[in-house]
Write a protein that binds this DNA or RNA. Sequence first.
RNA 1: UCCUCAGUAGCUCAGUGGUAGAGCGGUCGACUGUUAAUCGAUUGGUCGCAAGUUCGAAUCUUGCCUGGGGAGCCA
Length: 462
Amino acid sequence: MTMRIKEILKSAEIQSTITVEGWVKTKRELKAFSFIEISDGSTMDGIQVIIDKDLADYDNIIKQLNTGASVSAEGLVVESPGKGQRIEVQASAVTVHGGADPETYPLQKKRHSFEFLRTIGHLRGKTNTLGAVMRVRNACSTAIHQFFQEKGFLWAHTPIITASDCEGAGEMFAVTNFDIANPKRSKDGTIDYAEDFFGRPAYLTVSGQLEAEVMAMSFKDVYTFGPTFRAENSNTSRHLAEFWMVEPEMAFCDIIGDQDLAEEFLRYIFKYVLETCPEDMEFFDKRIDKTVLGTAQNIIDNDFARITYTEAIALLEKSNKTFEFPVEWGIDMQSEHERYLAEELFKKPLIVTNYPKDIKAFYMRLNNDEKTVAAMDVLVPKIGELIGGSQREERLDILEQRIKEMNIEADDLWWYLDLRRFGTVPHAGFGLGFERLVQFMTGMANIRDVIPFPRSPLNAEF
RNA sequence: UCCUCAGUAGCUCAGUGGUAGAGCGGUCGACUGUUAAUCGAUUGGUCGCAAGUUCGAAUCUUGCCUGGGGAGCCA
């Protein structure tokens, strides 16, 4: 295997002969020779290759080496006399694998809008910004696994297809092998799901949490990291129909331990990415959002603010700001409220805990005041809710009571309730929207630009 | 789904009732160890789609489609 360009730029020895493989970023033709900049996605910078006019078939090769063409170039590594790069390659043999007609190749040597790049999703990974995004995204994934593995968490592969429609986290996509124009029907005309593949209605998962709880009851500390699906007709810069979610779940853990983990987790990831992708992070800070590096450092250096929901409402009430949605105890906080707290008041991530029970899910642990539950949201500037978690209700009688109050079908949850019958224990966990994390970290304004193949309403082209 | 703004050359946009424009890109040439090279010339259009008003519509009206921003829902 040949060296990646990142390695070549870092450690190729002067006067050694190497082979560069990649795609042409720019070509600059001079009279006696040409400069070709080649990149392979391993790093932001390309490598400069000099092709001398003496090279066999020079005119034909140069004619093909337009932006986007694929090429292998063998040559001698030399110190670069020009500014802007330490080394360059004096080509001795060049193979063009595939040209890219400049009349029709959509990527130009200039800035493109992200809206336009979304229309050429199959090519946009070749751009500086999307390249940097994908490398940071990769580093985030690695950091997540490394963080949990170092702590002894078990990576639990929770199902993508689920038959329980009681997860309560949003609209679901149906999964069926019926001919949807002609599904099997009962005598009364309704669709007969007993005849469907699973013998019952099935859906794409909206959360792996309930299954993660199952795994935590055997393995103590577990996490999920996989795709999640929401069918809401939601069109915003922070929603996807298919996104990746990270969900740790810890037995013998309360809401305080949950918050501690969330904070340590985010700090670890930011640190890892700053160490492994410094050029990409500098690029974001310089070209995308000037607060990127400051935000990262802020997370690494400072504790998150921690307040209760009740305190948050009090802060909003005395803020003297007029909100579109009026503030009073019991409301579900709106985006404008969360953003005020995170962006203006605290100017850093904050964790809000102990929300009113009526606005939270059935599985969250009821507090002693019997009005609030042990929920926690991590709110960050610009994104809003990055993490949502809770201590889970481990007491069977109270959980059954809550399920009844919220009119949820308890029969479907028999296995979930069994966890409280057989060796129940206080436990807690949270869910993190992976793309929101990448968005927050890179400063990218639209979540569709931090995933290679975004899925959103009317968008599944690539 | 709601509110709002937009859709004109490959890209980014100007043109707001009277002959469709600029910059970038592409092409050709010149020049130069260049680096989003530079300079000159040149190329390029079903003005989102459909209907309507008008002597005349990119421009005004209506409907639809698509995209951006915001909201809701959520991670």
